[in-house]
Design a protein around this nucleic acid. Sequence first.
DNA 1: GACCGTTGTTTCGACATAGATACAACCGCG
DNA 2: CGCGGTTGTATCTATGTCGAAACAACGGTC
Lengths: 228, 228
Amino acid sequence: MDTQSTFDAYLSAGDVTLGARDVELLRAIDREGSLNNAAETLSRSYAHAQRRIVELEEAFGSLVERRRGGAGGGGSELTDNARDLLAAFARTQSSFEGVADIAETVLSGDIVDRDGELVTVETGAGHVRALVPDGSGAVELSIRADAVTLTDPEDTPVPEHTSARNRFSGTVREVEMGERIARIAVDIGGNQPILALVTEDSREKLGLEPGHDVVVSFKATATRGVSV
Amino acid sequence: MDTQSTFDAYLSAGDVTLGARDVELLRAIDREGSLNNAAETLSRSYAHAQRRIVELEEAFGSLVERRRGGAGGGGSELTDNARDLLAAFARTQSSFEGVADIAETVLSGDIVDRDGELVTVETGAGHVRALVPDGSGAVELSIRADAVTLTDPEDTPVPEHTSARNRFSGTVREVEMGERIARIAVDIGGNQPILALVTEDSREKLGLEPGHDVVVSFKATATRGVSV
DNA sequence: GACCGTTGTTTCGACATAGATACAACCGCG
DNA sequence: CGCGGTTGTATCTATGTCGAAACAACGGTC
């Protein structure tokens, strides 16, 4: 079974949520210069699109400046507010895409200490500090590969001097090159290696090849877990 | 206008996607011991729930072991496969929650170099390396607060010895304490400070108070941007 | 062998979403 | 003053989703 995680992103204000479909509509208005043409090119009904715009504006404020009559019959264009909203949507969507696409390592373990939502988990590789909303006992921690920093063992800050609460010494097990980004699997003693995403630049400077020693560190606040 | 980013998480296999509603159903079956009672407690129709299970199993493999007849008329329970699926869903959902909830800094700038999807962006605070799928010119970079590492200026690895490609010297501008987690705003010379999430532990050890000097670093692979 | 509560299957209808259509209002322009 | 293309509004219909209801099949237990 080959599952893949996907998502729908929304921006919500009050009880109205703006989704991908709405963004598509706003972009089309921007492109076409009129609500009518926008609905046309998207093969949607004008009536519905118009009602939706009104609905969105009640929650998000003015979005589309609409003029009727005049040369060419009128037209519509986006407000600055709408452009900000579109940019915000694009940003959050791209953040979510990061989560959906990027490899992560899953560590299993048991909670041995809890302080608010901050917990200490005993795993095969040692203690890991992480965020787990609630529960106790067995947990699964997920560590996104883009949140893992690799440093040279000779020049790694002592734990008191960095905010990365989790650090492990390990050796590179596998290097998988992408276009400009390498995925490094580092053995840290647990039953499975930690994956880290680094630029080819970094890979070269740190001399990351199989067998090379390296220190992996990641922040507690970027390590999230769920009870199982 | 106060917008908030939300999301719906899915796991998809082929053209079937498993969503929150399906997860709710599977959990109810696990809890109630029968498909019938599960549908009952969720106020859903048994018929629809049953069809949905069949549909999901065609894509995700065996999920529910159903027995009819026998003592008590039969019953159903989840397969190990289904439990794995539930855990996977919980993990991805919790990862998405991280993105939705956690503060981020948005830096505006212009692309000055591109190498694949890896770009160098000129911002008010200096050059930042980031991932931007396509486009050129103006971009907005979002840097999640949980991806920012703070280190002591006295003990920060030289750039050649760390995979964190972006580093800036700054001074703490503001500290906002949560329960066990502090949000630190660090001034790095741009028009807006970088936000970092650190544990209270780290805040104390690094002596993070307004006015204190600190080095902020974050990975290029954790910095995503969109063209504007 | 009848009972009983479950699974399996079909059909119907309620409901929400969205397209289709029609028509009024608007206003610069020729 | 009418034309033309737009916005604004109302109503109808198609579609898909999901609950409601009814009934057959199943198989331990008594």
